[in-house]
Amino acid sequence: MNATRWYGLVVTLIAAIAVAWPLTRHPVAGDSFPLSTYPMFATRRKDARLYLEYVIATGPAGARRHVPPELVASPEVMQAIVSVHAAVARGDAAGLCQRVAARLAPRGGYRGFDEVQVIAGNHRAIAWFVRGERGTERTLARCPIVRGAR
């Protein structure tokens, strides 16, 4: 075998073993980057139950809008979810509420809203989409959207 083939074999084997290495780990707990177990879409979620903390803006006459992730923490939905959960877990729901309210204050799109709420929701996702059933919600923090203050 010539040098090209030896080099090719060594690189291919190292790459293949490295990429397959996550098989030795738990599919969820052992996930990492870039060597991944690729556990996406793999787990069962009984009743498609979803507990989630999220942020909404509310206004007069029942106006309600879910605040998008980029105004909460990050343009990435999953990272925003983790940030919101972490804020709630460390007892900072009120702080998160105020930070989001400050971001919404100068935005024209939120002129009709006067309050921000951090909500803990408990929903069944399939029932939500197929039968239109809403779950329960609990307000963890609420704060006004203060405009005109610098």
């Binding site: 879409f41 069962r44 009984k46 498609a48 989630l52 809008r65 879910h66 992730p69 996702a125 989409f129």
Partner: peptide, 18 residues
Amino acid sequence: ALREQIAIDNLRKHLMGA
């Protein structure tokens, strides 16, 4: 499992305003 994942993922996005 796939049905549950699709439902949860979409509801998560809806609730997060995405």
